[in-house]
């Protein structure tokens, strides 16, 4: 069963469209929700958490609607975007209170809060008021409160914002561990390479519409109107280019550096098939063969029209 199902879901704020007739599913594992500012990511998360009421259509968690039916939320952990706190509370009080509000009994909540604080490496700072925390610490304590009641689904709105590189790495590791233990995660982020490092499962959103859904490689493969680019770093790129030019599937060749050739093709598998033979025939020294635009950033650029990969 899909974890989250969106069925012709729309959300309007007066005349502004937040989400427009969206139908999609989020399956188990980690799913990256990506899109530019104002695309509708937080709206989608707000709808998933029952904070917002759908204008039309429906959103279901494990087959159950969320709006005004909060029982299902006991299995969900939510980390909102931005500085959302009671600044006078200490980190421990914050996590403990929200674990209690999620229905955990006193002792269980205390243990669960400490475990969640440990998971996010906040034990050292847990007795300080949140108002005195740095941005990264605030982010981590927010994730701790989302974890405290041991949910089956985590909805994380921009969890990497404000975290330093080490904290980002630690958080990414934590999400991997949680996913391996059966926790489903829907994570939104602007930092595409971080989402890409976490998962290949994406939900790409722009102007309130889903523009791509599913496995990133599969999404890229289906983009027939965009020639695929293969970057080859080789000692004699001109020789390789002369051999490639005869292939019917090659639509363009570009030398971006002394040793780099970009091959544009409508059928990358065929090029990959022929490349070893050509390289051997020309006695060429290869340093790298890579898909130049199969990454999330390139796909995002192609689909949203906001910059493309080189």
């Amino acid at each position: 069963m899909a974890v989250i199902e969106l069925d012709r879901l729309s959300k309007w704020y007066g005349e502004v469209i937040g989400l427009n007739d969206v139908t999609a599913t989020v399956d188990s594992g980690i799913t990256g929700l990506i899109g530019p500012n104002g695309a509708g990511k937080s709206t989608l998360m707000g709808l998933a958490m029952g904070q917002l009421r759908p204008s039309t259509g429906s959103i279901r968690l494990w087959g159950k609607t969320v709006w005004d039916r909060p029982a299902v939320l006991s299995r969900v952990g939510y980390c909102p975007e931005g500085d959302v706190f009671w600044p006078e509370m200490t980190g421990q009080q914050f996590v403990y209170f929200l674990a209690r509000a999620s229905g955990l009994r006193r002792r269980a909540a205390r243990t669960a809060a400490l475990e969640a604080i440990d998971l996010t490496a906040m034990r050292e700072y847990m007795h300080r008021p949140i108002g005195t925390y740095s941005k990264g610490m605030r982010q981590r304590i927010k994730i701790a409160q989302a974890l405290a009641h041991m949910p089956r689904l985590l909805i994380l709105d921009e969890p990497f914002t404000g975290a330093d590189p080490v904290a980002r790495h630690d958080l990414a590791q934590l999400f991997h561990v949680l996913a391996s233990q059966g926790v489903d995660i829907l994570i939104s982020s602007h930092v595409l390479h971080e989402v890409e490092a976490l998962t290949k499962q994406i939900l790409m959103i722009d102007h309130g519409r889903i523009v791509a859904e599913g496995d990133l490689r599969e999404v890229r493969r289906r983009m027939h109107d965009r020639p695929h680019a293969i970057r080859v770093k080789v000692d004699q790129p001109r020789v390789l280019a002369s051999k490639l030019i005869g292939l019917p599937t090659v639509t363009g060749l570009k030398m971006t550096a002394e040793d780099t050739l970009i091959i544009e093709t409508s059928a990358p598998e065929k090029v990959y098939d022929r490349l070893p033979e050509m390289l051997l025939a020309g006695d060429l020294l290869v340093r790298e063969i890579a898909a130049a635009d199969a990454g999330l950033e390139a796909v995002f650029g192609y689909l949203t029209g906001r910059g493309a990969a080189d």
């Binding site: 904070q51 005004d68 909060p70 909102p80 929200l98 999620s102 229905g103």
Partner: peptide
């Protein structure tokens, strides 16, 4: 106003 209501209404309690 402080947006902290999100923590209270995204628990299993009715509003």
């Amino acid at each position: 106003e402080a947006r902290t209501l999100v923590y209270l209404v995204t628990r299993r309690m009715r509003r």
